[in-house]
């Protein structure tokens, strides 16, 4: 093979590999819209927030409201429930994180789980596989998940697995003494 043949070959190899790579990159980029379209669309994304009037909720009563398609528990806790929740040691819990979107990184003491001790607000989705726990069915007046038996206390903290985490506390603020805005 003469010198010029070799350079000729090298040039063609380069063109071949360059064209092939462009095609490969182009193809993988064009896959993105097809993957991305599966994500929640703008309508779902638009963060609807809800305002809830707490006035009609009696002590000991728990209601469920819908926020972003998810159930949110609002519980008017009894003095006994507050007392028991406050007395639990964080170290004895399965999940020691508050899981409170308003206090990221805080520990799971009852003080960090609620903005006002009378009211527990938590997303009502079991952190195991997503069922809705049933109110009052567990010990300590908390929640029992009917699917695989997880138990949560009156602070929404998991007491018995398989659920790995405490119920999520969504972002919320008290607009007045008897009104909260979730989201």
């Amino acid at each position: 093979m003469s010198e010029s043949d070799v350079t000729e070959l090298g040039r063609r190899d380069f063109l071949y590999i360059a064209t092939g790579s462009f095609a490969a990159v182009g193809l993988s980029l064009s896959a993105w819209p097809f993957i991305s379209q599966m994500n929640p669309d703008a309508g779902v994304q638009s963060l609807a927030s809800v305002v809830v009037d707490l006035e009609p909720i009696e002590i000991g009563q728990s209601i469920t409201v819908k926020w972003q398609g998810k159930p949110v528990f609002i519980r008017h806790r009894t003095p006994k429930e507050i007392e028991v929740s406050r007395s639990v040691s964080v170290l004895s819990l399965i999940d020691s994180d508050a899981r409170n979107e308003n206090l990221p990184g805080a520990d799971a003491s009852d003080e960090n789980r609620v903005a006002n001790p009378d009211w527990l607000v938590a997303v009502g989705i079991c952190t195991h596989l997503g069922c809705i726990p049933v109110s009052g069915a567990g010990e300590l007046g908390g929640w029992l998940c009917p699917c695989h038996g997880s138990i949560y206390d009156a602070s929404g903290r998991v007491l018995k697995g398989p659920a790995p985490e405490n119920l999520l506390v969504p972002p919320y603020v008290f607009e007045s003494n008897s009104k909260i805005r979730i989201g």
């Binding site: 599966m38 994500n39 929640p40 669309d41 779902v44 398609g69 998810k70």
Partner: peptide, 13 residues
Amino acid sequence: VEWLRGGFSIDNA
């Protein structure tokens, strides 16, 4: 999970 469902829960999408 959100990608599979196309939402925050099982819905129309």
